[in-house]
């Protein structure tokens, strides 16, 4: 190794440290800048009618985002209903029946790869599968696209959570003569309950702010989302997209910021909640 003077080494060390502090400060500043902008511009839009009125066509100055808020709730709930059960069942298979087997590795590998697929392609897939064949955009198609994103996430977290349940619990349940399915659902899943819920909530937080998969599936609309299965369905993110890019009106920009604030708060709150809940669990 090359010999260098003490001064040079200390100077280099100091320089690197300065740069690290600079970049950490830079990263934190930018985060603060983004959040500050969203809060400052978004709070202006907040009022009672902002949450209760539906969106209005271009040129009409009043209106809110009530329908988009409800639509996002519907679409996300739909995604949970479609995506979570197979995710949990698949996770059970990986954890209970496929440990240390080749097929388990193949499935795990596919799920990991699937998590890396650009979300807009899930939108294309569902478009070709559901929208093109039925000839209409619908909230249901949006739910399906989000469910495809959720599925591998739930699958993997379920497996991880079930793996944390000690084997002795499994063995004692089976030793009592409990059938496998019964042991899995009422003993193992119950022991891992909070972990499973955390996993699902994190998956919800992940898809709740997605825009790209909804562009060609749920589309958007100014109506209330009561024809969820057959008509384009209002939702927050695509509304933000429309208001921010296709509208010259400041009122609409403000409303887009308001919607952005709503969705940011919801997702950050979900994330923080999950972290705190799970940390407590691990601490015990």
């Amino acid at each position: 190794m090359k010999r260098r003077g003490m001064f040079f080494r200390k100077a280099l060390n100091f320089t690197v440290k300065l740069w690290s502090i600079f970049f950490v400060a830079l990263a934190v500043t930018i985060i603060a800048w983004v959040l500050f902008t969203v809060f400052r511009s978004g709070l202006k839009a907040f009022s009672w009618t902002f949450f209760t009125e539906s969106t209005k066509p271009y040129g009409i100055p009043d209106g809110g985002i009530g329908n988009a808020l409800l639509g996002t709730l519907f679409i996300t709930a739909g995604a949970v209903i479609i995506g979570v059960p197979p995710g949990i069942l698949g996770g059970i298979y990986l954890s209970e029946f496929a440990q240390g087997r080749k097929r388990g590795n193949i499935i795990r590998f596919s799920a990991n790869v699937m998590m890396g697929i650009p979300s807009i392609l899930c939108g294309l897939f569902i478009y070709a599968l559901l929208v093109y064949t039925t000839k209409h955009f619908s909230g249901l198609a949006g739910s399906a696209a989000l469910a495809i994103i959720m599925f591998p996430v739930v699958l993997r977290t379920t497996e991880d959570m079930l793996q944390m349940v000690p084997d002795s619990l499994r063995e004692s349940a089976l030793a009592l003569g409990t059938p496998r399915w019964r042991a899995t659902f009422s003993v193992i899943c119950r022991a891992a309950k909070s972990g499973l819920i955390t996993g699902v909530l994190l998956a919800v937080a992940r898809v709740g702010g997605e825009t790209a998969p909804l562009l060609f599936t749920a589309l958007w609309s100014d109506d209330w989302p009561f024809r969820f299965f057959t008509e384009p369905t209002a939702n927050l993110t695509v509304t933000i997209n429309e208001y921010a890019t296709n509208s010259p009106f400041d009122v609409m920009h403000t409303r887009a910021w308001g919607a952005a604030l709503v969705i940011s708060i919801a997702i950050l709150a979900l994330n923080i909640f999950c972290r705190l809940a799970f940390k407590d669990k691990k601490g015990i």
Binding site: P85, P86, G87, I88, L89, G90, G91, I92, Y93, L94, E96, F97, A98, I106, I107, S110, A111, V113, M114, I117, L121, C122, L124, F125, A128, L129, I148, F151, P152, L155, P179, R180, W181, T184
Partner: peptide, 29 residues
């Protein structure tokens, strides 16, 4: 019931691979 349970969970797990293949196939088509 156990066999059914196993088939059901296996089906859900293989969905990961099926969706992947389906995605490629669909876009290609």
């Amino acid at each position: 019931p156990d066999r059914l349970f196993r088939v059901l969970t296996a089906g859900a797990a293989w969905l990961a691979m099926l969706l992947l293949v389906g995605l490629v196939g669909q876009l290609f088509y």
